[in-house]
Computed example of a mutant assay.
Amino acid sequence: MSLQGILDAVTMMDRSVRLARRNVDTLFASILMPLLMMALFVYVFGGAINTGTEYINYVVPGILLLTTGYGAASTAMVVADDMTSGMIDRLRSLPIRSFAVLTGHVTGSVARNAASTAIVILASLAMGFRPAGSVVDWLATIGLLLLYVLALSWLAAGLGVIAKSVESASTLSFFMLFLPYLSSAFVRPETMPSWLRPISEHQPITPVIETVRSLLIGTPLGNNGWIALAWCCGLLLFSVTLATSLYRKRTSR
């Protein structure tokens, strides 16, 4: 990457972060919805769900991934807005590298997710979450969540590129919000119907949740750590390739 390319990327990163600060309602929603879901499951459903441990300790790792899903979904809508509002045409008239546009949006997504995740963790501690992980465990958790957020944000950026409107981008990114409900985020997979259990056990989000759960509250890790890394790295590679190729194809018209 050339020096000019790096400078272009930094410029678009700064733009994306400033847009995130101005778009308070999107940031608020990405924080409020996970908090409401956590309160709903802990205070309403938690007493009826047996996970072998305090339910809030069980559910917080899943809520953290749900939070990143809301943040990534907003990335798809922001990219779609740029693609359909004429902003991309304006940027194409400037000497800015094409990859810098998506890089800026992804960076903004990571910044939003970092803020919302920190708030969710603080709220969970106030609600009774008691992690037992060491400093190293927390650093490993942060690293894994960052990798997952990057992969999901690049995928969302690709969806935003192909969306014909902001509304359709929201629809395309719906699975990011829905998939955690089919994982081990809220209940143990063995309590699910026999036809649904394999989906829960072998989808990409479950090993990520189980790895975070192991790091923070000490549940058995097994092979989940390696599987989670493989899923995240594979999804990141696929998403970056998909998003950049779709962007080049659409902007070359």
Rank of each mutant, 00 (worst) to 15 (best):
Q4V: 04
Q4E: 11
G5C: 09
V10F: 10
R15Y: 14
V17W: 10
V17G: 04
R18K: 15
L19T: 10
R21K: 11
T26L: 13
A29C: 05
A29K: 12
P34A: 03
M38F: 01
A39W: 07
F41R: 02
F45E: 08
T53W: 10
I56N: 05
N57S: 02
V59P: 04
V60K: 02
L64S: 11
G69E: 04
G69D: 06
G71T: 10
S74M: 13
S74G: 14
V78K: 11
T84F: 04
M87C: 00
D89H: 14
L91N: 00
R97Y: 05
S98F: 01
F99G: 03
A100L: 03
T103I: 09
T117W: 00
I119G: 03
L125K: 08
A126T: 12
S134V: 09
D137S: 14
L146M: 13
L147P: 04
Y148G: 05
A156S: 15
I162E: 12
S170I: 00
T171S: 12
L177S: 10
P180D: 03
P180M: 01
S184K: 03
T191K: 04
H202C: 01
I205Y: 04
T206P: 01
V212F: 07
S214A: 14
I217Y: 11
L221Y: 03
G225H: 14
I227Q: 11
W231K: 03
C233R: 06
T241D: 06
A243S: 12
S245L: 15
R248K: 14
S252I: 00
